[in-house]
Design a protein around this nucleic acid. Structure first.
Length: 597
RNA sequence: CGGGGCGUAGCGCAGCCUGGUAGCGCACCUGCCUUGGGCGCAGGGGGUCACAGGUUCAAAUCCUGUCGCCCCGACCA
């Protein structure tokens, strides 16, 4: 049993001015954490207790499928050179030198060290599969730490790595993690969605993100409540209600649209819907020039979307094979379109033809390489008689029909899915909401086995590379997500599994021997029944203690007050705020029944 | 990195324009009082005004620079 009067739980009436999100405010106010620097936090008694409870859950579930290691945070440069990530990680990696001048870094993740162990130790397929995990501090020099514990530079991660002999084996290891993660997050009482994520640069491999639905999150998730479909906005697709085309078979025809630049203005002026318009975006692809180091190579990219749609930049980046882009400058637009911005359209614009890149000589390839790319969103496919810019000041074109009047280099899905559109699986209305990533599982394939040279002998005595997976959980994010999902004006409540205490016992007057005696007795009995108990034995007014109890995340409170003379106390649930009287004799069984029905 | 904001007591803030004494609420300490929702009264402690340089008889206040922190955009558990 813990006595509040002897603990350090520095609660605050007011939140620090720079805290924005609920979890940050309450973590500080409840005395869970204190800030040391940007994205660097100390966990005090209550915070650490909760983190340890979360780790207990994670460890218990992980131990069912894997083996716990603990790897050093301090890593030598050479290891990271071998995987190529000494360069790739760039500014995000904390780097330091030892006294001899050798380069070291603080681990951001541990594929390198795990693979190093694997390559030194694993010899035979008979040793596979292996699942190795650890719960350890990670260091990332984030460009912008924010929102309390949500985005920090040092944090606790459960990271796991699997080694299998073949893809079928990896599938099994991956599935084990998927299920384990579900159990962990369920036990932590979180509302979350599992979404398919970017398969990333490694190609072909599966990846799922576990996303907690909360406005404090930094990602946007599209989900269907009907069938359970969920996807990151960067990947989400939808069924669109069919758009009506304008009638007729006419050729493109200029119309005077004086001073009208926006989709809305033009649509209104011409009496058409934005869905009958083409939105033309002029972007410039930018990549490092291989021939002239330090220089950049640019290439215009024309993006066509339906008038009411918006561009998803991540989708475009994927369509450009990961290359970056920026809006075109005014003079670049002038050069490519021979038109002022605001009147751009796809007709008679030079662009690389579909499939043109594959054929032709080297000289042709160089010429083709400079032509603008024209990427059209699939929502425009099969449409006709659209309205688009005429590439001429104050004019638009009517009757623009794709594949007759212009020929995109490629049709791609580029648009943002919007709320209310049809679920791609079942047609149900899609919901768009913010979410925070709490876990990520990933089929790595052979990336590290290959770059770092890990091999084992297979059944036939042939040297083969083990296939890997990696799996991460942000421990602090479980805490922040739980707070974001469970708070009100007075504080927050955590599920008992991850709360620092199961119950706080609040004697209303510590100087009243009957009350205090009863409180002590109840605390003992509950401890005996396996609950973790915080006895608020401080000589404070009841109001102060109630306020603190409401603040600090403990799911249940037992008020011990005047009713002790009748042998009664009140059991209050923090989440529902419902209070129930209970007899003191047998309180441990009554409480157990209320808490674990 | 680009853009914006803020650094005065543990927390929340005022003072700064118009230079001269550092102030308020909460928290903290002592005493009394009170004891079911941050109670009341009285007394008290605590500040190199982020740092450095400059202007001035005199700088929290004006000028310059540096650092730190927060927020908005490109990355991630």
């Amino acid at each position: 049993m813990h006595r509040w009067s002897q603990l350090f739980i520095p609660t605050l009436r007011e939140a620090p001015a720079d805290a924005e999100v609920a979890s940050h405010k309450f973590l500080v106010r409840s005395g869970y954490i204190r800030q040391l620097g940007a994205g660097i936090y100390s966990y005090l008694f209550m915070g650490q207790r909760s983190i340890l409870k979360i780790i207990d859950v994670v460890r218990e579930e992980m131990n069912r499928i894997g083996q716990e290691f603990l790897l050093p945070a301090l890593n030598p440069r050479e290891l990271w050179e071998q995987s190529g990530r000494w360069q790739v990680m760039g500014e995000n990696m904390f780097r330091l030198k030892d006294r001899k001048g050798a380069d070291l870094c603080l681990g951001m993740t541990h594929e390198e060290v795990m693979t190093d162990i694997a390559r030194k130790e694993l010899r035979s397929y008979k040793q596979l599969p292996q699942i190795w995990y650890q719960i350890q501090n990670k260091f990332r020099d984030e460009p912008r730490p924010k929102s309390g514990l949500i985005r920090v530079r040092q944090f606790t991660m459960k990271d796991a790595y699997s080694f299998d002999i073949d893809e079928a084996g990896l599938d099994v290891s991956y599935k084990k993690h998927y299920e384990t993660y579900r159990r962990i997050f369920d036990r932590c009482g979180l509302k979350y969605a599992v979404v398919e994520a970017h398969s990333g640069a490694m190609g072909g491999s599966a990846s799922h993100e576990f996303m907690c639905m909360t406005d404090a999150g930094e990602d946007i998730v599209v989900s269907c409540e009907k069938c359970g479909y969920a996807a990151n906005l960067e990947k989400a697709t939808s069924q669109l209600a069919p758009a009506r085309d304008l009638p007729g078979d006419g050729a493109p025809e200029e119309v005077h649209t004086p001073g009208m630049k926006t989709i809305e203005e033009v649509a209104k002026f011409l009496g058409v819907s934005p869905t009958q318009k083409i939105k033309t975006l002029a972007l410039m692809q930018v990549e490092p020039d291989k021939k002239n180091p330090g220089q950049v190579k640019t290439r215009p990219v024309i993006v066509l979307l339906r008038g009411d749609h918006t561009l998803n930049e991540a989708k475009l980046t994927s369509a450009l094979d990961g290359k970056e882009f920026r809006p075109m400058h005014e003079e670049e637009i002038q050069r490519v379109f021979m038109s002022p911005a605001g009147y751009l359209g796809p007709v008679k614009v030079p662009a690389l033809a579909a499939g043109a890149q594959q054929l032709g000589s080297v000289t042709q390839a160089i010429i083709l390489d400079a032509l603008p790319l024209m990427l059209a969103d699939t929502a425009l496919k099969g449409r006709k008689n659209l309205v688009a810019g005429a590439n001429k000041e104050n004019y638009h074109l009517k009757n623009v029909t794709p594949l007759r009047d212009f020929h995109p280099t490629e049709w791609v899905d580029l648009r943002n899915v919007a709320a209310g559109e049809g679920c791609p699986n079942c047609g149900g209305a899609l919901v768009v909401g913010r979410a925070m990533e709490i876990g990520h599982i990933f089929k790595l394939g052979y990336k590290y086995s290959k770059s770092m040279g890990a091999t084992v002998l297979d059944k036939d005595g042939k040297e083969v590379m083990p296939i890997m997976g990696c799996y991460g959980i942000g421990v602090e994010r479980i805490l922040t997500a739980a707070i974001e999902q469970n708070n009100d004006a007075d504080g927050f409540w955590l599920p008992p599994q991850i709360a620092p205490f199961d119950v706080v016992i609040t004697p209303t007057n510590v100087k009243d021997a009957a009350i205090m005696g009863a409180a002590e007795g109840i605390a003992q009995k509950l401890e005996g029944a396996g609950f973790s108990v915080l006895l608020d034995d401080r000589d404070e007014r009841a109001g102060v203690k109630f306020k603190d109890a409401d603040l600090v995340g403990i799911p249940y409170r037992i008020n011990v007050g005047k009713k002790v003379t009748e042998g009664m106390v009140e059991v209050v649930s923090r989440s529902t705020r419902k209070s129930e009287d209970a007899n003191i004799p047998g309180i441990e069984t009554t409480f157990a029944r209320m808490v674990r029905p």
